[in-house]
Design a protein around this nucleic acid. Structure first.
Lengths: 258, 258
DNA sequence: CGAACGATTGACCGGCATCAAACTCGGTGG
DNA sequence: CCACCGAGTTTGATGCCGGTCAATCGTTCG
């Protein structure tokens, strides 16, 4: 996965002041003020990360929300018994770390799946007692609220998928979700470079690795997918939608509403 | 379920101006300003609802976020094929409608499970160009962000439950969740009045009604629960936690991390 | 009382997890 | 260059959890 030509600077740990004017994600970033007011921007830390690097661990003190500039990330959650669950993937332009705002510590661990770049926006960026920039802060907060709303809506969809869809449908829904978000990030919706392993997909979807693997070959056989390791071609997004819609099988009978 | 002595006024549809000073939930309400600044409060509509009443339907235009003053509510989501999924229950002091902020329409339908009372806070409450109250708006927005953060964290926990836990564990986790939230709302954690039907529980947990029914009797037989229709006594919350923690069975072997 | 609805219990079976083994691919060292 | 290794992936065989179907019971309401 070296699709993105990132200038990797040799100052990984410390980070640097964010260069928002040049940022490709400024349109969706809660820190970038359309009105041009850049007060507080010096609080924001930008840094680059390598594949496998952990951004923060679950349970560590909240230090701000993160915006993905480039690269791909995954959130995972581990219960007290060591049971692991991938709770989400994060694409360029998206946020993570939102669950830590309220409790003061992050609920998930986040890891880079790839070389990437991100910004950390501390909560203080949105607060403070300076009356002069209160309006600017309100705008930033409102942008944050919108992004969080999107996260909530996305979670609801995912909950629906886990509760009501069978393995085949879940897998199709997953592919559609990735395709759409890759599209939003400027990639080709019909030609994906998966940034995660089969195991991670399985874990995310609440399935066994073997099941996911079988689904890949099954979809391949049905012409729904052209798989080459992590390189995917999707001939028809509509066909996948048909599978999720479940003209498929028993799932449709679950809870019909007259 | 008539645990709460609500003064039911005969002006259901229209609503009335919120009486925040007397509200039992003002501590957790994003509209109530600790600093005493009550500008914009006239925008907030309070109303009472009866069991079964629909607050809004999925897809309708976003008109604000709702705060539960009293009573219990459920969110549900229906896909294009009529497949229904209960995505959440809402207890006093909690918010719903959050997923509509970004897209401009509600993603879920919400229904009262009981007689109850709630407030609607339109988005404009948090915005506006008046510089004088900008600081107050920032505070309100920050409160909203915190509540949304809590919702995101809760969703993550639920996703974990759906993906990684078996029916027995899910059911135990559900009981613990309800007990905790009832506790937060001022009720007895060990003595619950369930406000939802078996069908709704099953739907929420992604299980069949029959399975949930079997679990009730099973837990009853093991002394984990004392069931009398919707009246529950929980002798030991710790025992339920033990089940979720899965010293139980195979689930613990799913994804162990050395 | 009978109808309607929710809850319970039993019998059956299918989807997916589990176990087990082979295969692919990239890296490493002799 | 090839043997070797390990991680990730694929494929096959088997078993069980929980969904489905069906019947009964209890409660509420017309």
């Amino acid at each position: 996965m070296v699709n993105n030509n990132i200038v990797v600077l040799n100052q990984e740990r410390s980070g640097k002041r964010a260069s928002c004017q040049l940022c490709p994600r400024k349109a969706s970033c809660p820190a970038f003020d359309q009105a041009g007011n850049d007060s507080g921007l010096e609080r924001i830390q930008q840094r680059t990360v390598r594949a496998g690097e952990e951004i923060f661990a679950a349970g560590t003190d909240f230090a701000g929300v993160y915006v993905v500039r480039s690269g791909f990330f995954k959130s995972s959650l581990m219960d007290s018994e060591g049971l692991l669950q991938v709770t989400g993937f994060h694409f360029p332009g998206e946020l993570f770390g939102l669950d830590g705002i309220d409790g003061g510590r992050y609920g998930n661990s986040v890891q880079a799946l790839d070389t990437g770049s991100l910004c950390r926006i501390p909560l203080e960026f949105f607060m403070g007692r300076d009356e002069a920039v209160a309006a600017s802060r309100s705008r930033a907060l409102m942008a944050l609220v919108r992004l969080m709303s999107r996260a909530v809506a996305r979670d609801n969809g995912f909950i629906f998928a886990l509760a009501r869809l069978n393995a085949r449908q879940r897998f199709a829904a997953f592919l559609l979700d990735v395709a759409e978000r890759m599209g939003n990030s400027g990639y080709d919706r019909n030609h994906l470079q998966l940034c995660m392993s089969r195991t991670e997909i399985a874990n995310y979807l609440g399935l066994a690795v073997e099941t996911v693997s079988r689904l890949f070959t099954q979809f391949q056989g049905e012409g729904l997918l052209d798989v080459q390791r992590r390189d995917l071609r999707i001939p028809s997004l509509e066909a996948l939608q048909g599978i999720v819609r479940g003209t498929d099988e028993a799932a449709a009978r679950l809870v019909k509403v007259g």
